[in-house]
Design a protein around this nucleic acid. Structure first.
Length: 265
DNA sequence: ATGACTAATAGCATTAGA
C-alpha cells in the first residue's frame, strides 16, 4: 500500500497536474490539502474516471482537504470517521476551518490534515496554530487508544529540524520553525508516532516545498513541512519513502511536491 | 527592511499562503 500527501494549492487550478500525478504514480491513498473549493464544486467525477473514490471537506476560497482511494485496490473506498477537530478559526466569530478529515481505509485509520501556517508570528494566527496542534495531539491520542493501524499525513506547516530547511537563517523568524511549533511536533513523536521520512532519511535535505518567489525552486531553496506520521503497527511495515520532486518543476505546479510512503502488506 | 509569486473571489485589489 502506498499512502501519499499532496498540498495541491487549488484543485481547480491544479486538476491537470493532479490527474497526471495520480496516473503516473498511482498512490493507493492520496491525502490532498488546500483544495480551495466548496463542497459542491469538488470535481469527484474527474477522479472516478481515473478509478479513485473521494471524500472531501471543502471550504470557500481557502483550506479544504480530501482523501482519494484507488478503487482497484480498495473497492469499497474510504469511510468517513470524523471531519474537523472542533476548533474555530482565529478571527472573531469565525467558524471552524476545513483542515481535518479522518477516514477508515480497509481497517486502517487515515487522517488528512492541513495544519495552520501560523504566520505572522507572534500573533493570533500563531496562537491558533498552537491551539490546533494541541487539539490534534488529543485526537491522535484517542486514535492511539483505539489500537487501530493509523497514519496521520498532510501539510503540518512545521520544519522539524535544522536539516529540514535550506537555510536556517532564512526561515528563523517564520512560524514554521519557531521553537513552540517544533516542540508541539516533537510531542507527537514523543507520544510514539513515527515520522516516516525522517526514519528512512535521518540526514535531512529532503524538501517538500519550494516557494514560488525569488527563484526558490531553481536555487533548491526548499524545506520539509509535509509529513507522514505512523502508528507502531504501520511503522513496522514501513518499506520506502519519497518525494515526487520532479512534479514540482512542471508547468503550473503546486508549490508543494507529493510525499509518499510504501507499507508492506 | 521589503518584495518577490500564485490562487481565489471579488474589485476595479485584497487576502492568504509559507
Amino acid at each position: 500500500m502506498k499512502i501519499a500527501t499532496f498540498n495541491i494549492n487549488g484543485i481547480k487550478a491544479r486538476l491537470p497536474r493532479l490527474k497526471e500525478w495520480l496516473e503516473e504514480t498511482r498512490p493507493t491513498v492520496a491525502c490532498l490539502q488546500e483544495i480551495k473549493s466548496q463542497d459542491e464544486g469538488f470535481p469527484a467525477a474527474e477522479f472516478e474516471s481515473l478509478g479513485y473514490h473521494a471524500i472531501w471537506h471543502g471550504q470557500k476560497s481557502f483550506n479544504g482537504v480530501a482523501v482519494l482511494t484507488d478503487t482497484k485496490v480498495i473497492p469499497d473506498g474510504a469511510t468517513e470517521v470524523q471531519r474537523g477537530l472542533g476548533i474555530n478559526g482565529p478571527k472573531d466569530g469565525e467558524g471552524e476551518q476545513s483542515r481535518y478529515l479522518e477516514v477508515d481505509v480497509a481497517g486502517n485509520r487515515i487522517v488528512c490534515i492541513y495544519l495552520p501556517n501560523g504566520n505572522p508570528h507572534p500573533g493570533p494566527k500563531f496562537d491558533y496554530k498552537l491551539a490546533w496542534m494541541e487539539k490534534l495531539r488529543d485526537r491522535m491520542a484517542a486514535i492511539w487508544a483505539e489500537e487501530v493501524p493509523a497514519a496521520v499525513l498532510g501539510d503540518y506547516n512545521v520544519i522539524p529540524e535544522d536539516n529540514d530547511v535550506w537555510a536556517v537563517k532564512g526561515m528563523a523568524a517564520d512560524a514554521l520553525m519557531q521553537p513552540e511549533s517544533r516542540a508541539a511536533y516533537a510531542k507527537l513523536l514523543g507520544d510514539g508516532w513515527t515520522d516516516a521520512v525522517r526514519t528512512l532519511n535521518p540526514r535531512g535535505g529532503m524538501w517538500t516545498y519550494w516557494d514560488y518567489q525569488a527563484g526558490a525552486w531553481q536555487r533548491d531553496h526548499g524545506f520539509r513541512i509535509d509529513h507522514i506520521l505512523l502508528s507502531p503497527e504501520l511503522a513496522d511495515r514501513l518499506e520506502a519513502v519519497g518525494v515526487d520532486k520532479e512534479h514540482r518543476g512542471r508547468e503550473k505546479a503546486s508549490d508543494h511536491a507529493p510525499v509518499w510512503a510504501v507499507l508492506r502488506n
